[in-house]
Design a protein around this nucleic acid. Structure first.
Lengths: 347, 347
DNA sequence: TGTTAGCACTCTCATTTAGCGAGTGCTAAT
DNA sequence: ATTAGCACTCGCTAAATGAGAGTGCTAACA
């Protein structure tokens, strides 16, 4: 038995109806709401076939049909048509970027909250990898005898800082000398490169200042090793409470416990997605029991043509894929665009 | 009719039992679990009195009694005895401060997560007021022709930064000049004072550098006005899902929607609490319909004897007050202590 | 006068039962 | 190949029932 046009139409109808109603859909309903020109009986036959093919399933005899994971997959791959965003949503996005987006962190976090607001699902976004960004400025400030703050400004507008221990005798002037050398030698260089090759050269240059030589090495080791971890923003988690599939507290708890673990979240976002385009992962394709009733829609955002982060939406498998995919795609382009405009010339 | 010792004992028993069971408690239960030396019938009489006095209430005839808000209040004010923390909890706190607490933000956030972990309720903490902190260092970094980053380091170890517009012609050397003057004149001064009196003096000093005079003023106006807002950390919100009173999704939603609004949260923490000591607000004392079934336990933490922030726990009215008050008190002292140790000499 | 045993009464909650309605699958007619 | 008709299944809801917990009252007791 093969998929023919009418089976596709029926499958499409089932999915459309189920997405909006969250109730199993029966043959009569389809015949009434969608004009396929055939009677419920015929639709029943088609449904029987679709069930045999694995695209839909029955919660129990005498209930309507519900799309199976395979059914959603088929829909996403072959049937769905992208939707345009409404004026209102375009507006939200446009306004969202207007103010208060002064560095990458803010842009990313703002994007995240817009996305959860628009889709009404949970949204996740991972900050740009810092290993591709370059040093713009570094500064050492003595806070206290024996303690100094290292401040590193990256060309992405991100600031990292860390408190380090320094020898008791070191004063602010010493620190300025070190900062000076560091800035002169390292400015504009990629952070990873700094750690690899340049220690030796600086070691040499600073040997004129014997007394702060130790400090310098110390700095490179400890100060620059400050957390380079990408941060994951998570927003609109409470939106999922509005989904009928989460009226059961237990389900909410298991989901939330997963979202609480950043490692797993990272996994959802980064796990072997192809770069470019929007990827949809449905239910057990996520390989996690806790989210077997959820799907994730992920896309990659870019700067200078380089992929630098991921952005995604998490919702129930019964999500409006056509709609969410469009939104994610749109947000990704907007984000890349905003970053490009904002940081043109910074690198 | 007046409260006598036995009535107090009965009220105490009701509250203790209800706190642990979340079920209305009857006269027989009390007679069995608590050795008051009297029969259920006598207890019933006392309960009847307590109800008339308003300390307990009955969900319906033939249910046991439940403490009323007034009952909790009486318990908190007159009956409860503080508990010591267990070895295990002391351990959590001790370890929590060992590593990874390099600046105030981290200390605060770490304290918050420890508190929610220990109490199993939601916990909130407000970062130190920055208006009492002093300028340690300021730095201007040119990111791009026309855009510069202002970085301000406070003596609390906090860093604030902001992107500002500068005239096209300004280069990094100009910025260094301005930073230099600013640092020389403003270092160690209270942030609020900076905004008030010193503009004029600096204006004069910088007049030697006509070309960056405008920039300087610009800076003071825009750069230093970066968000001074205290930040509120919120942790362990999902803990409340474990409380039986929140098995109802609707309640969860209304509570979460309140917690989502930072302003309201701030209100819960800051609203007319006396400074010093631990304050307990029960149910409608919070003046918010959304949290009429919740209580808040708040304390103030200090640095150099000055109150600088609030820390609190939010749970159902049926929370273990004796226990929570002890924990909050303990955490507050620990926090103040840690800050004191860490930043001694920074100011 | 305070305490207690006894008992009738109330009300909730869990369980059972019955009936309805939605939906299917099969069969026979078109 | 399509459709009307129909018996059958099964979940859901509402009503009925009974058990259990707890109270309030009364009368007896110390």
């Amino acid at each position: 038995m093969k998929m023919d046009t009418r089976k596709q139409q029926v499958l499409m109808a089932i999915i459309m109806d189920y997405i909006s109603s969250a109730e199993p859909v029966g043959s009569r309903t389809i015949a009434r709401k969608f004009d396929l020109g055939v009677s419920p009986a015929t639709i029943r036959n088609e449904m029987s076939d679709l069930e045999e093919l694995g695209y839909i399933e029955q919660p129990h005899t005498s209930a309507g049909r519900v799309p199976s994971q395979k059914g959603y997959r088929y829909y996403v791959d072959f049937l769905m048509k992208k939707k345009d965003l409404s004026k209102k949503e375009e507006e939200i996005i446009r306004k969202g970027y207007e103010n208060k987006v002064k560095d990458i962190g803010q842009v990313v976090s703002q994007t995240n909250s817009m996305m959860s607001q628009i889709t009404n699902y949970a949204s996740m976004i991972i900050t740009p990898r810092t290993d591709t960004s370059a040093l713009k400025h570094m500064q050492l400030v003595l806070m206290n005898p024996g303690q100094a703050m290292v401040i590193v400004v990256l060309n992405t507008g991100t600031i990292k800082h860390n408190i380090i221990e320094v020898p008791e005798g070191v004063n602010q002037t010493d620190l300025d000398t070190v900062s000076g050398v560091f800035n002169a030698r390292l400015q504009g260089l990629n952070i990873d490169k700094i750690k690899l090759g340049l220690i030796r050269e600086i070691y040499f240059e600073l040997s004129k200042h014997k007394n702060i030589l130790d400090l310098a090495v110390h700095l490179l080791e400890e100060g620059l090793s400050m957390e380079k971890e990408d941060k994951i923003y998570l927003g609109g988690v409470f939106n999922i409470l509005n989904q009928p599939e989460f009226h059961n507290i237990e389900k909410v708890k298991t989901l939330l416990s997963l979202l609480d673990q950043e490692g797993l979240l990272r996994n959802l976002l980064e796990r072997d997605y192809k770069e470019g385009g929007v990827t949809v992962r449905i239910g057990s394709e996520l390989n996690r029991e806790e989210v077997k009733d959820c799907s994730v829609v992920v896309a990659t955002y870019h700067l200078d043509g380089q992929p630098i982060g991921k952005i995604g939406v998490l919702g129930p498998t019964r999500m409006d894929y056509a709609w969410v995919v469009s939104v994610v795609e749109h947000m990704t382009l907007n984000l890349s665009d905003t970053l490009e405009k904002m940081f043109k010339g910074w690198r």
